[in-house]
Design a protein around this nucleic acid. Structure first.
Lengths: 189, 189
DNA sequence: TCGATTGTCTAGCGGTGCTAGGATTGTGAT
DNA sequence: ATCACAATCCTAGCACCGCTAGACAATCGA
């Protein structure tokens, strides 16, 4: 009876333990070092236990990605709230880039590793919330253009900077200028 | 004497055979299915032969990526040449997105898998040529802003669309609108 | 024709994701 | 308090991975 609930609680606890361990290891030594064996040793259980929580390694990465998306949404909220009027866009863009450089493995999980996350119509709530934050910033600037499409373009622009930047494909000394150009490109037009 | 040259010729031939096989397999069944074993079987040699050509699996991916960058540059050239005056930007953007959707595995090799390619100062010639093509399109629109930074921002915007789009993270029905918005955003500002 | 060199292969090492089947633990009823 | 049962966990192992050492065969220069 009540033990049932305790069991579930412990299970949930262990699940977050796994996700956190995976994230820590990935951030420390890269995702390739996050193996089921090492993960099992880290949480002090045998490998099959992990498979009683997740369908496989990919599902663990997805869980980390989902957690990261939730955090990203919070970062957006904070950036928007702390920005002076008119500076919301710059604040969110800066927050996005900072998030990507501060948590490269998490960012990688979200945007290049996660494969089991549904998008489009039946996307998880947390993902829609993240897009909504961007929408709140970009849609007012859309003018007579479709606000959804406009937001997507804005998102893509930021995301491109984040991806190419973290891949070492952009000149580091131009970082500030890129940010200024991007913001100027969207507030004017 | 002459046999030496024949040997080198055969060696080079086999090298391109490996690269092409890797690319084909990746494009057919994804990069995860491109293993040294399967690659060796495909080219009808044993595994160690591959290691006499490349330092490891990663180097093969890098070689495919390099080949892809060269092709991308040609695509840029063709798009720019075939565009009517003033439409170069739209042509190049469209070409970029088409390239990404037509060769997803190649695109992945270039931008997310390749790790041994040097960037910045001592980047391979073919990589600089690709950037130069983008520069030719974006720099004239930079105005009083730094043309390099401006090009990087433009590149990032396109790239973001390509990455998020191929990852299924953007609404397919808004593709045309996104393209129009992006182009408008850069020709006006 | 014979040694040396070059090229290629077989076999195997440590590691991976994942799973079947047995041992062990804790539960609820008698 | 004891016992049958159910849930839980672990040991052991499969097929595959990237990569490499060492044996073998083929080709070359003398």
């Amino acid at each position: 009876m009540a033990t049932q609930q305790r069991r579930e609680r412990e299970r949930a606890q262990r699940e977050t333990l796994i996700v956190n361990a995976a994230r820590d290891m990935a951030e420390a030594d890269g995702w390739s070092s996050v193996t089921i064996r090492r993960l099992a040793e880290r949480i002090e259980y045998s490998q099959p236990v992990l498979y009683s929580h997740f369908a496989g390694r990919g599902a663990i990465v997805d869980a980390v990605a989902l957690q990261g998306i939730a955090e990203l949404t919070e970062v957006f909220k904070a950036a928007r709230a702390g920005a002076e009027p008119g500076g919301e866009l710059a604040a969110v863009v800066g927050a996005y880039l900072d998030f990507a450089t501060a948590n490269p493995a998490l960012f990688e999980a979200i945007f290049t590793l996660a494969e089991g996350l549904p998008f489009g119509v039946d996307a998880p709530e947390v993902l829609k919330a993240a897009f909504a934050e961007l929408y709140a910033v970009f849609a007012p600037l859309a003018g007579e253009r479709d606000p959804d499409a406009f937001t997507e373009v804005g998102w893509a622009a930021i995301h491109g900077l984040a991806v190419l930047g973290s891949g070492g494909r952009l000149r580091p000394d131009l970082l500030e200028q890129r940010l200024a150009i991007l913001v100027g490109q969207f507030v004017k037009g």
